[in-house]
């Protein structure tokens, strides 16, 4: 009988074997070449659960080298338990440096947020994606959504968007508003708030999106036009935090977390933990702000 009694006590650099890393790297390069298109890839199992950032991890581990400086955030925070866990895993496997400082990082892995601070050409933002198929809500079959992308047939999502407008009185229905990448592919920006969507367009950094469970990688290259889906007369709007200031810093113009006090009263704190640190210490880091159309 086949029986191997030797247990492994060490791992390949960055955990994933070189053969599979190369496959992920080839697919990532194709994703860069076809902005917004979802490239299928092998998506090997990780010691981290599916749906907890495996796609992001595949990308990060295929990118990372000993000279990299890694930042991991979850919901905008370096302190989130899952961020801590992923950060520790990458560090143990790749012996790279770690940081909370957005500007110091070469690779940032994030869930649900794009950092407030403007990212540069030397940075890669890896976004974790639960559902890469933005059309899944309007068509449940993969074979069909793939044909819809192939034919740039986006009628169904436009209809859904319009229906959402009729129902809710505005266009954005929550996180992960559909985007049009480079005028060709409708894609998901991952479940980031509307506030972050304008940051994706014509950015200096590279955005990589990894969906581990669904085995897809997509990309927004630098200097690529990205438009939230909107109608000529009904425009996309980001969250407005009108008359709201951060309780901890007294500052505004950043995505705010609403926090409920013991007495159920609400107050607000800047969501991006490193940005909050920086505005409290000053000076305020460079930010790209979006003005809602009237």
């Amino acid at each position: 009988m086949i029986e191997n009694l030797k247990f492994q006590d060490s791992f390949n650099y960055a955990y994933i074997d070189e053969f599979t890393k190369k496959e992920i790297r080839r697919k990532t390069l194709k994703a860069v070449c076809i902005p917004g298109y979802q490239v299928p890839y092998s998506s090997p199992e990780m010691p981290i659960s599916r749906g907890w950032g495996t796609g992001g991890l595949h990308l990060t581990l295929s990118l990372v080298g000993p000279d990299d400086v890694l930042k991991v955030i979850d919901q905008g925070s370096d302190a989130s338990v899952n961020a801590c866990n992923l950060r520790l895993f990458v560090k143990e496997m790749a012996q790279c440096a770690l940081t909370f400082d957005t500007a110091a990082a070469t690779i940032i892995q994030s869930r649900h947020r794009v950092p407030e601070e403007i990212l540069t050409e030397n940075q890669i933002l890896v976004l974790q994606v639960p559902q890469p198929e933005i059309l899944r809500g309007v068509e449940r079959h993969e074979a069909k959504t793939r044909m819809m992308h192939a034919e740039a047939d986006y009628a169904k999502i436009w209809v859904t968007l319009y229906e959402a407008y009729v129902r809710n009185g505005h266009l954005r229905s929550g996180a992960g508003h559909p985007i049009m990448v480079n005028g060709r592919y409708v894609a998901t920006p991952s479940p980031i708030p509307g506030w972050d969507v304008p940051n994706l367009s014509m950015a200096r950094c590279l955005y990589l999106f990894g969906a581990g469970r669904e085995k897809r990688i997509h990309c927004i290259p630098p200097f690529t036009p990205v438009k939230p889906l909107e109608f000529e007369d009904i425009r996309f709007k980001v969250e407005e935090f009108v008359g709201i200031k951060c309780q901890m810093s007294g500052q505004d113009k950043a995505f705010m977390d609403q926090i409920y006090a013991e007495d159920f009263s609400r107050y607000f704190v800047i969501n991006d933990s490193n940005f909050l640190d920086k505005v409290r210490q000053g000076p305020r880091p460079p930010q790209k702000l979006f003005t809602n159309p009237e």
Binding site: S49, R50, G51, W52, T54, D74, Q75, G76, S80, N82, R111, H112, R113, P130, R167, N168, G169, H170, R172, S173, G174, A175, G176, P191, I192, P193, G194, R213, E239, F255, D257, Q258, N271
Partner: peptide
């Protein structure tokens, strides 16, 4: 299936807040 059903234990406050805002507006 195991991973994704359990990922609901992760914090979702940013996405949830975005949804809440949408409801408030509505």
């Amino acid at each position: 299936a195991y991973g994704f059903t359990n990922h609901l234990k992760l914090p979702h406050y940013v996405t949830f807040q975005a949804g809440m805002e949408s409801y408030r507006r509505a």
